Simulated scan of single mutants.
Amino acid sequence: MAPRLWIMTTLSSANINPLHRQRVKGREIIVTEEPRLHLVWIHDRIFIKPLPRYLLSLAFWETCLSENPGQLGDSQSNIRKAAIGFLRTYRYLVQHESDFNIAQQENLRLISKDVDWASFCRFAAEVGHIEDSEVSGRYCYGELRLTRLNFYAPLFLRKFHFEQVHGQYGDFFGRLYGPLLFIFAVVSVILNAMQVELAAEQLSAVHWVSLWSVCRWFSMLSLLGAAVISAWFILLWLWIFLDEWIYTARRKVEKRRENHDEPKC
C-alpha cells in the first residue's frame, strides 16, 4: 500500500508529532509489536512500536543489516531500509527531554532504561541525516489514520479492513450509526418540507405538476433507500457471522489434517 499512501496522508516523513504533542492532543499511546501499526492512530489512540535494543547495536547492523549483499539478497536490502526508516521515526517522536522521559515511563518502555538522554541526542543527530531515498516507502510518510487505511483496504489490499479494532458486533455497527442517522435526518426534513408544500398546493388554484412528480419519485427513492440500507445491515451482520464460522471450521480442518499427517511413533 506504500505507493498509494499519498492519497491518505501528507507526503512528508516529518509528519510525526512528538510524544508530548500526542498527550496534548489527548491521544493514548498504545504499545504494539507489529511494525505495520507503528504510528497508526485512530480517534484518541496511537500505536507505537518500542525501539528494540538490537537496532541500537553496531554489531547487529554490521552482522545482519550491512550494506554488502548477503544471502538474503533483495530481502535483506528491504529489511535494512525498513529498519532505517523505523529508527528515523524516533528522531521525530523524541525531540525534547520531556519526550524522552515519556518514552521511558514504566507503562510504555519505548526506549530502554539503559539509554540516557545524552546518548539519545547523539543517536538522533545521526539519524537526522537520513534521506527518504534510504528508507522503505512506508517511512516516507509519518502518522497514518486507521479509519482511512480501513476505508481503502478493500480497494488496495483486497481485504475487508487493514486492522480490526472492534471486537464486539455492537462496537463495529456503532460507528455506522452516526452517518446513517444524519442521512435519515436530512431525508426526513426534505420529506416533511415536501409534505407541507403538497398540502399548500392543494389549496392553490394552479397546481405545479412537476413538483408533484418530483415529490412522488423522491418519496419512492427514500423508501427504496431505507429498504436497501436495512438489507445491507442484515447482510453485513450475516457476512461477519458466517465469516467467523467459516474461519473456525477451516482452522479445525487444517488442525485435523496436521494431526493426521504427523508421524506416529
Rank of each mutant, 00 (worst) to 15 (best):
I240H: 07
F123W: 08
R175N: 12
F172M: 11
R109D: 08
D99S: 03
R80I: 08
L11K: 08
F86W: 01
I130C: 07
G26L: 11
N101S: 06
F162A: 01
L19N: 06
A227V: 09
W217S: 07
Q168M: 02
A118K: 15
L11R: 09
D116A: 12
G73H: 00
A14R: 04
L198K: 03
Y92C: 12
S98P: 00
R148W: 04
L221D: 14
S210G: 02
E254A: 10
R27N: 09
S66W: 10
F86G: 04
G26E: 05
S77Y: 07
K255H: 15
R109H: 02
W232Y: 05
I229E: 07
H207Y: 06
L211E: 00
R257M: 12
K113Q: 09
L93N: 07
C140D: 01
N192R: 13
N15F: 02
E163Y: 06
P35L: 13
R36E: 10
F47W: 15
G174M: 07
V228F: 11
Q164R: 12
L223W: 13
V94E: 09
G137Y: 05
N107I: 02
S213I: 03
H38P: 03
K81G: 03
R251S: 02
M8L: 15
W237I: 03
E126Q: 09
V253S: 08
L93S: 12
W41C: 10
Q195H: 06
V94C: 08
C64G: 00
L181V: 14
G26N: 10
P50I: 05
F156Q: 01
Q164H: 05
L37P: 02
S13R: 12
Q195Y: 05
C265D: 08
